[in-house]
Design a protein around this nucleic acid. Structure first.
Length: 214
DNA sequence: CACCAGGCAAGTA
DNA sequence: TACTTGCATGGT
């Protein structure tokens, strides 16, 4: 079965089994950016607590959060883990934006995709997955997000081998699917749903997985 | 108790 | 370039 057909079949199977996922779970592009850093190697549930702390403190905006002392920011985001590291990473991102664009987040996110991706990757604390999550879910740009679940699911279905890198997986999707931000959005969200529910490390048999047999 | 979760950067050789 | 390690909370 050709790769393009397999990828489409997997999408159709997940989509009909789970329905639309309505990702990213955030109210604004700004919240997408903050959540993207907070969720690095961390369960989303813990990120929700951190975001609730920030909202409760009334600092969930570019202007307020960028002015917050890093030590205080770290306390608010403590439930998300790695809180000192992530406070610094948020600081790096927010100040890179305000230094060049002031409070005009739209101007920052409105840049051409390659240019914005390059700027994000130049920020310490933002790697490929975090950058691509911001591009796709924050800026609405058509780029496929690859994460640990994506790698694991493709590996278990023997579509890739263990040492297949980020770009190779990303190109696998983008070369074989229509260039469509909404499709990439839903596809990645569904892969995470399968990962959370069935394709965990501790669940190597993937029992009852909707992708069984593919 | 051990292991895992929607990574990333810095250190080492 | 290719490994290894630190970062840290909360759920299973």
């Amino acid at each position: 079965m050709p790769t393009a057909d397999w990828l489409r079949a997997v999408y159709d199977r997940m989509r009909s089994h789970f329905g639309p996922q309505h990702w990213w779970p955030a109210e604004t592009p700004f919240e997408v950016m903050v959540g993207a850093i907070l969720t690095q190697n961390t369960a989303w549930k813990n990120v929700e607590r951190a975001l609730a702390n920030l909202k409760g403190a009334g600092v969930m905006s570019l202007a307020a959060l960028s002015e917050l002392p890093t030590a205080l920011l770290a306390e608010y985001i403590r439930p998300a883990g790695y809180y000192n590291i992530k406070a610094g990473r948020l600081h790096n991102l927010l100040h890179r934006i305000t230094d060049q664009y002031g409070d005009d987040l739209q101007a920052f996110l409105g840049q051409p995709l390659p240019q914005l991706r390059e700027q994000l990757l130049a920020i310490k604390g933002i790697g490929r997955e975090t950058a691509d999550s911001i591009l796709l879910y924050g800026a609405g740009l058509p780029i496929f997000v690859v994460d640990a679940y994506t790698h694991r699911i493709l590996l278990r279905h023997q579509v890739i081998d263990e040492d297949c890198g980020y770009e190779a997986i990303q190109e696998l999707f983008m070369d074989n699917l229509d260039c469509d931000a909404q499709l990439y959005n839903e596809y990645h969200a569904l892969l995470v749903r399968v990962g959370n529910g069935y394709c965990k490390k501790k669940n190597p048999l993937c029992a009852a997985c909707p992708l069984q047999g593919m």
